Simulated assay, not measured.
Amino acid sequence: MLSRRHIRIKVMQVLYAFRGTESDDFSKDQRFLLNSIDNMYNLYLLMLSLMIEVQKRAENHLEKTSQKHLATAEEKNPNRKFVNNQVLDMLKNNEQLQAKFEENHINNWDLDSEYVDVIFKEILASDIYKEYLETDTTTFNTDRNFIVDVFKEIIAPNEKLYDYLEDKHLTWLDDLPTVNTTILKLLRKVKKDASAFHFLPKLYKDLEDKEFAIKLFKKTLLNQTALTAEVTKKTTNWDSDRIASIDLMLLKMGICEIQSFPSIPTKVTINEYLEISKEYSTPKSSVFINGILDKLTKEYQTEGKLNKIGRGLM
């Protein structure tokens, strides 16, 4: 679920907030980094649990309307397609997933049920919902396509939900696109006979990714003086105050990665930090960062300092 780029963003955020020196005790900030990454999984679980709660809300709605004193024939015998949606049932009845909810204390919607109502009402008012109820047959594919559309068009872009998540955890705003993309991929790929673990992806692709996060954080922090000196060498015509703080941090991380991660191609490193700068810094930052990292890479290569393993890694 977690990409290397998102790991780099997490490291950048903690380093930027920390702004410590090589002599500082950074164990607390390393824990904060890992907790921030781990908390991304809670967001993933929270978004999945929201869909389950919306289904429960729909069932409760049908039950209440059917018991009205002057209920219409349609209200007494309502269309139960949404309530009986096979994908939502799969989520609701997944014991491993429910255990994860309990283990990670995912119970937000018990206290903040108004957001469940917001999503439910938007679904009821949507053309997606009306077209779904009008379909003649109910198949697993029909149910799956409906849930994919609901998540993509109603849940993921919901502004009230966005504001709620921002209030709960500031870092969730950066995590949300990755989480939503993961959920959409899993929804699109789910099959009727899917494993119970289909909706329980790993946070890290492998152990190397977690080690990458820790090493990049430590190496950048512990070598800040030397990394800053490398940047200064290539910006002699720049007033240090003119270099955006985010750009300086991204440059130090990029140089650290070029120097300390022999298995990562330099082109990959430079491209990753260019893309991050486009999202988090100024419009001209990517050009500036590309120029500095490119010059340093060529210099290291000429001097024999570019220690890369494997072909095509220069």
Results as ranks from 00 to 15, higher is better:
residue 290 N to D: 12
residue 223 N to W: 11
residue 239 D to G: 01
residue 202 K to H: 14
residue 262 P to N: 13
residue 292 I to T: 04
residue 181 T to C: 06
residue 255 I to F: 06
residue 182 T to M: 11
residue 264 I to T: 10
residue 158 N to W: 04
residue 158 N to D: 14
residue 224 Q to F: 09
residue 240 S to R: 11
residue 238 W to K: 09
residue 269 T to W: 01
residue 240 S to N: 08
residue 184 L to D: 06
residue 179 V to I: 13
residue 253 M to K: 12
residue 204 Y to F: 15
residue 245 S to E: 15
residue 232 T to W: 10
residue 178 T to G: 09
residue 204 Y to S: 01
residue 230 E to V: 09
residue 276 I to S: 07
residue 219 K to D: 10
residue 230 E to H: 10
residue 169 H to K: 15
residue 269 T to R: 02
residue 210 K to C: 10
residue 197 F to C: 10
residue 172 W to Q: 03
residue 220 T to V: 04
residue 200 L to K: 07
residue 170 L to E: 13
residue 212 F to T: 02
residue 269 T to N: 07
residue 184 L to W: 02
residue 276 I to T: 03
residue 194 A to R: 04
residue 237 N to Q: 12
residue 189 K to P: 00
residue 164 Y to F: 13
residue 224 Q to H: 09
residue 251 L to Q: 04
residue 276 I to N: 00
residue 229 A to V: 03
residue 257 E to I: 01
residue 203 L to W: 03
residue 163 D to V: 05
residue 248 L to R: 13
residue 188 R to F: 03
residue 225 T to A: 15
residue 210 K to L: 10
residue 247 D to P: 00
residue 277 S to M: 10
residue 291 G to M: 11
residue 205 K to E: 15
residue 244 A to K: 08
residue 232 T to G: 02
residue 171 T to V: 11
residue 206 D to L: 05
residue 293 L to V: 04
residue 159 E to I: 13
residue 169 H to S: 13
residue 244 A to F: 06
residue 201 P to C: 04
residue 154 I to W: 05
residue 286 S to H: 15
residue 191 K to F: 01
residue 234 K to M: 08
residue 179 V to H: 00
residue 262 P to I: 01
residue 275 E to H: 11
residue 168 K to R: 11
residue 191 K to R: 12
residue 216 L to E: 01
residue 184 L to G: 06
residue 198 H to T: 12
residue 216 L to G: 00
residue 206 D to P: 03
residue 247 D to N: 15
residue 250 L to H: 04
residue 221 L to R: 05
residue 243 I to R: 03
residue 170 L to I: 11
residue 246 I to E: 14
residue 198 H to K: 02
residue 159 E to P: 04
residue 174 D to S: 08
residue 241 D to L: 07
residue 259 Q to Y: 10
residue 253 M to I: 09
residue 248 L to M: 11
residue 203 L to R: 11
residue 192 K to C: 07
residue 166 E to F: 07
residue 157 P to S: 12
residue 180 N to L: 02
residue 287 V to D: 14
residue 183 I to C: 08
residue 219 K to E: 14
residue 156 A to F: 08
residue 260 S to N: 12
residue 236 T to P: 08
residue 168 K to P: 05
residue 272 E to W: 00
residue 284 K to S: 12
residue 225 T to E: 13
residue 244 A to I: 03
residue 149 D to E: 10
residue 252 K to W: 00
residue 190 V to D: 02
residue 177 P to N: 03
residue 250 L to C: 06
residue 247 D to Q: 05
residue 258 I to R: 05
residue 210 K to V: 02
residue 204 Y to A: 01
residue 208 E to V: 09
residue 196 A to D: 13
residue 186 L to K: 14
residue 183 I to H: 03
residue 212 F to Q: 00
residue 198 H to F: 05
residue 243 I to C: 07
residue 206 D to H: 05
residue 180 N to E: 12
residue 248 L to C: 01
residue 151 F to C: 04
residue 265 P to T: 07
residue 156 A to G: 00
residue 242 R to T: 11
residue 151 F to A: 03
residue 231 V to A: 06
residue 159 E to T: 09
residue 175 D to E: 11
residue 248 L to H: 08
residue 276 I to W: 05
residue 190 V to Q: 00
residue 279 E to A: 15
residue 150 V to I: 15
residue 224 Q to C: 06
residue 172 W to I: 04
residue 153 E to N: 13
residue 284 K to I: 00
residue 289 I to D: 01
residue 169 H to Y: 09
residue 181 T to Y: 02
residue 191 K to Q: 13
residue 275 E to Q: 14
residue 168 K to M: 07
residue 165 L to C: 06
